[in-house]
Amino acid sequence: MKTLLYILTIFISLNIFSQTKFITKNGVVNFEASVPSFEEVKATNNAVTAIINSENGEFAALVLVKGFRFKNALMEEHFNENYAESDKYPKATFKGKIKEFNLKNLETTSKFHINGELYFHGQTKQLNDVIIKISMEKDIISMSGNFEVLASDFDIKIPKIVSSKIAENIEIMFDFQLNKK
């Protein structure tokens, strides 16, 4: 009877362990669509939520589009009203899975690949093999990387009059410090 109880306890604790999640609420996502020699088109969001399931490498991130801050207030207004239409599409999300992710692998490798779907402005785009740097220190997982998307992938039309000042290729950078929950 006692042995059974021990075994049961081990199983339950294993089960709890397998539910390990790492979360951040203040992750950083930047994007840049600048064209050289024109005013930079760049914004930062410091309130990004990201969750990783350390057991299977499943990863999700949520960006509230209104939280993107530009240097130029008018640019921020135009971004929200004309390009991202943040009243209509307040969220951008990413859901995916990191290949061969394992907490033990973190000791030997820092470069991983992630596949997943990026949703923004009502459109979804599949991203494959995005390189992601991951490291772990004292129960904090750091993840960072960058990738490029096209404005047209997300049905964002850049008017001709400003097309020389806004790049069609948009560089997106992310940096998350996830705490164990």
Binding site: K25, N46, A47, T49, A60, L62, L64, K66, G67
Partner: peptide
């Protein structure tokens, strides 16, 4: 208010 985060079920302010 910048929106509602349904991953964590929290309202976000900046």
């Amino acid at each position: 208010v910048i929106g509602y985060d349904d991953l964590l079920e929290q309202v976000k302010l900046d």
